[in-house]
């Protein structure tokens, strides 16, 4: 009680430790630290993979001389710390090394595919977030009604299904056996923007939406119910505010805070979950690239994709925390 009355706000502090800006700076630094630790783990894990990259590239019939020459060329005979610092130093200047299999720079190889995958995830997020917030909020308002009961049941079933099952089911329903409305595979020729073939994007997006929506719906419903039962919503009603204002101004903003956190976790999950979905629909994104790279022991590509996914995790979580702070004045005050 007394602590709150002490004028802490007047204490002079630098920008880095103060306000929302300081919070973002601190979190970004922490994010860099996280990525550094991830890089250690990723590098160690790829080193531990069985098999010899040189042999994987040259095939079974390679001569010992050509293998030695290739190892030399790929720095594979240098010490592991040297290989790690070499790789990390490259990452810092935007050079993820050279693909072993395609003998092209990894960045060039992944550029288009990253764009494709990012666009797919973005589409899925733009569709699923508003829809799931709306469904969750509406279910809470009609608690125990027909809509609430059926949406609860459907989201529960969807949450239990792995996305490749959902994907295959959608193909059966919409692209092959039952009806033939949409293409079963999405082929984006190299050099074409992902939005050129929107029809091919529908099924992969839908699969991701169905994979993510249940969680967001359920947390939004739970959080909205809690807010609707709160005393300040009861008070808003008792002072005669129109129901529309009670919901939009008093209930929704307070219910969104916890939901943002779950959305972030799900977006980060999308970045990883996209791999399976891309496989099902033969989508030319990082998922396909990762699969190819693993089977050909193309370590630089595997490492680069793992780092990209880790970065997505860090950034979405940061974005969710910032969004939560923006809808929660109490947290803003604490940062001041």
């Amino acid at each position: 009680m007394i602590a709150a009355e002490v004028p802490t706000a007047r204490r002079r502090r630098s920008f880095v430790t103060r306000g929302v800006g300081g919070f973002i700076v601190r979190r970004l630094l922490l994010g860099l630290l996280t990525l550094f630790l991830v890089s250690l783990v990723v590098f160690a894990a790829t080193q531990a993979l069985p098999g010899d990259p040189a042999r994987a590239i040259l095939g079974r019939g390679a001569t010992p001389e050509s293998l030695t020459a290739l190892r030399e060329q790929l720095n594979l005979n240098r010490s592991i710390p040297y290989q790690y610092t070499d790789w990390l130093g490259g990452l810092l200047v935007g050079d993820a090394g050279t693909s072993l299999a395609a003998t092209r720079p990894v960045t060039e190889l992944l550029g288009d595919r990253l764009l494709n995958s990012a666009f797919l995830v973005l589409c899925a997020a733009l569709v699923s977030i508003p829809i799931s917030i709306a469904i969750g909020a509406y279910a809470a308002l009609r608690r125990d009604g027909a809509f609430d009961v059926s949406s609860s049941l459907i989201t529960l079933v969807l949450a239990a299904l792995p996305e490749f099952v959902v994907g295959v089911a959608l193909i059966v329903l919409l692209a092959t056996t039952v009806s033939n409305l949409l293409p079963a595979v999405s082929s984006i020729p190299p050099g074409t923007a992902p939005w050129a073939d929107l029809e091919g994007l529908v099924l992969p997006t839908l699969t991701l939406v169905l994979a993510v929506t249940p969680y967001v719906v359920r947390i939004m419903r739970a959080s909205m119910i809690e807010v609707l039962e709160s005393e300040y919503v009861e008070m808003a009603r008792l002072k005669g505010l129109p129901e529309r204002r009670v919901i939009w101004r008093h209930a929704l903003p307070n219910a969104l805070g916890p939901t943002f956190q779950v959305i972030a976790l799900n977006l980060a999950y999308l970045a990883g979950g996209v791999i399976i979905v891309e496989f099902v629909f033969n989508f030319p994104g990082i998922g396909g690239a990762l699969r190819d790279a693993v089977s050909t022991r193309d370590l630089p590509v595997v490492q680069a994709i793992a780092m990209v996914i880790a970065a997505v995790y860090v950034l979405t979580n940061l974005a969710a925390d910032i969004a939560t702070i923006l809808v929660t004045p109490r947290l803003r005050t604490r940062l001041r």
């Binding site: 709160s230 005393e231 300040y232 009603r237 008792l238 005669g240 008093h250 929660t328 109490r330």
Partner: peptide, 23 residues
């Protein structure tokens, strides 16, 4: 609805819980 907060108004027990924290 028009009567509540108009003709009859209410003062709740716990003001810290009944004022909206985000408004």
């Amino acid at each position: 609805r028009r009567l509540r907060g108009g003709l009859i108004s209410y003062v709740p027990q716990d003001p810290s819980a009944s004022l909206n924290p985000a408004v």
